[in-house]
């Protein structure tokens, strides 16, 4: 419950943030909503001698939909995502997924940037961002660089972000077609036993493109290119679903924990993906 002492900073611009990160390296961490970091600090599982609060840094909030591109500032909260009619019209899967994350209080504080940068495979947004083929914006001492969500995750809590970089935004093309974020969990606020993000396009009664990513079934989110490909050209019948599920099962690598043994998780992953595909298809 009691976190270790730290030096606290509340810079008002990104230069200030980067200067502190440059000075203290991995002894410094940014604080967004605080709803993964503070719990870890309270358990003394995260040691953060220098804590940089981003709340006063300008330019990190907000949702824009422009020219077919959607951009979410990193400090945009889950509540703001849920409440944005513009975003829901442009990419309804964001709202559907956000409503399955945590609980009301946590959603008021927790941010999209924190969710995707955290690196915990339990987080829901990373898989969703891979499904949407999102791009993460990272600012560091040499300026901004862009990393595909599909290339960002290396292992549990290991991402492509360097210690002196800050994730400032996520962006993605406005998705087309049907969508679903389906999540099996033990209770409200739990990380997924298995979850699936699906976007699917239907033309002339057939699937012309499909994107599928899975949550909490490996030490990273899993974009299953083959699972999506298995649906393309089909009418998304049982055989196509079977093929997609088989492809997905070939890509995940769950571990046993108190959500269940490996075989159970693979079983749940299969069911969840079927449901997600069916729902996305019905909306396509």
């Amino acid at each position: 419950m009691i976190p270790a002492a730290f030096e606290y900073y509340r810079p008002t611009d990104m230069d200030g943030v980067l200067a502190i990160l440059a000075e203290h390296g991995d002894d410094a961490r940014v604080l967004a909503g605080g709803h993964s970091l503070i719990p870890m600090m309270k358990l003394r599982m995260a040691e953060v001698p220098h804590l940089i609060d981003l709340q006063d840094v300008g330019g990190l909030k907000g949702i824009t939909v422009e020219g077919g591109t959607i951009r979410l500032g990193a400090m945009t909260t889950q509540t703001e995502i849920i409440g944005s009619d513009t975003l829901t019209a442009a990419a309804p899967i964001l709202r559907e997924a956000s409503l399955q994350i945590a609980d009301p209080q946590v959603r008021y504080m927790g941010t999209i940037g924190g969710n995707v940068a955290n690196g915990d495979p339990g987080n829901d947004m990373p898989g969703l961002m891979q499904c949407l083929d999102a791009t993460f914006h990272l600012i560091g001492p040499d300026g901004t660089r862009y990393v595909a969500a599909r290339d960002f995750y290396e292992a549990a809590y290991m991402t492509d972000r360097e210690d002196d970089e800050v994730l400032t935004a996520v962006s993605f093309d406005q998705p087309v077609g049907g969508y679903a974020y389906e999540k099996q969990k033990r209770k409200i606020g739990d990380y997924a036993t298995a979850a699936a993000a699906v976007q699917i396009v239907k033309e002339g009664g057939k699937c012309t493109s499909a994107s599928i990513a899975m949550t909490n079934l490996s030490d990273t989110p899993i974009y299953s290119q083959e699972a999506g490909a298995a649906l393309v050209g089909t009418v998304v019948d049982d055989a196509a679903m079977d093929a997609a599920v088989a492809a997905m099962l070939g890509d995940i690598d769950p571990t046993e924990d108190n959500r269940g043994p490996i075989e159970f998780k693979r079983h749940v992953a299969s069911l969840i993906l079927r449901r997600a595909i069916a729902r996305a298809w019905s909306r396509a």
Binding site: Y8, L31, G34, H35, I38, K42, Q105, V106, Y108, M109
Partner: peptide, 24 residues
């Protein structure tokens, strides 16, 4: 950060006050 017994309203948001540093 599960139970919500510490919930207060902070700048118009329902917040679990066990997961906010006084500095924030």
């Amino acid at each position: 950060t599960h139970c919500g017994a510490c919930t207060v309203t902070l700048n118009g948001k329902s917040v679990k006050s066990c997961t906010v540093f006084v500095a924030q």
